[in-house]
Design a protein around this nucleic acid. Sequence first.
DNA 1: GTCCTTGCAAAGCGTTTGCACAGAA
DNA 2: TTCTGTGCAAACGCTTTGCAAGGAC
Lengths: 134, 134
Amino acid sequence: MKTNQEILVQNGVSPSIQRLKIFSYLKATKSHPTAYTIFNDLKDEIPSLSKTTVYNVLKLLIAKRLVQEVRIEGNELRYDAEVREHGHFKCDVCGEVSDVFLNQPLNLLLNHSYEVKEIQFNITGVCKSCLTKK
Amino acid sequence: MKTNQEILVQNGVSPSIQRLKIFSYLKATKSHPTAYTIFNDLKDEIPSLSKTTVYNVLKLLIAKRLVQEVRIEGNELRYDAEVREHGHFKCDVCGEVSDVFLNQPLNLLLNHSYEVKEIQFNITGVCKSCLTKK
DNA sequence: GTCCTTGCAAAGCGTTTGCACAGAA
DNA sequence: TTCTGTGCAAACGCTTTGCAAGGAC
């Protein structure tokens, strides 16, 4: 198992404290945080942290394909260190965003008249726990 | 074939000029315009049109499920009057956004532990015509 | 020294809100 | 009158940009 630091280095990202903490934070969570949430959760650990750095690091990690942007509702942008082909489910009631994996790659259902770089899919609805609470 | 005006009325939307023009504009295009593009293209026809009205009408049409929001890149929000289950392909080279339909509904590939309201999927890559131009 | 990274402050841009006016019922 | 719809202007919130300071090499 590679450490997060090793992953960064192997992808040509020099592992500053900020980069490592942000990347590790994303690797450790499944909550698909927004940039603001990342900033907010890390500013205790790194008191000097600025939002600019959060955005800079996210942009860099996206360019290196270590992180994906997730656009599931409105114009809020979320971030995800899970980069395998997958989708997201957002519950309209509780607002939770969770990962969705398919039985077979979506890829196979497409007519390949174009070159595919990235596939994402988004589902909205009501999650199991909110359904049972009704 | 229903007229756009009839569709609005049947969905409980009183058909003002602004609403009808915006809805008709979306029905007639496959270009997945942004709110700004809609505003810009219609302001010659309706000189008094304001962006607020464009946003108001879009919000109303979305609530009535006559229009979908499309989030495919960055934090730009696009709009689409195609409301059947489908996805979008955005070409990284020319920037065009086109509709994608699958051989079978994505629905069937999901474990239904939740209630699905809306499914969208987004693909980025390089389109056929940009591939051949290389 | 140079280059890379960080972070403050300001700007930018798309969207929403407050509010007033106009028109229909 | 009351309710609905429109549209200007201002506010808002997220993201980007400009730029200067700090740190690695």
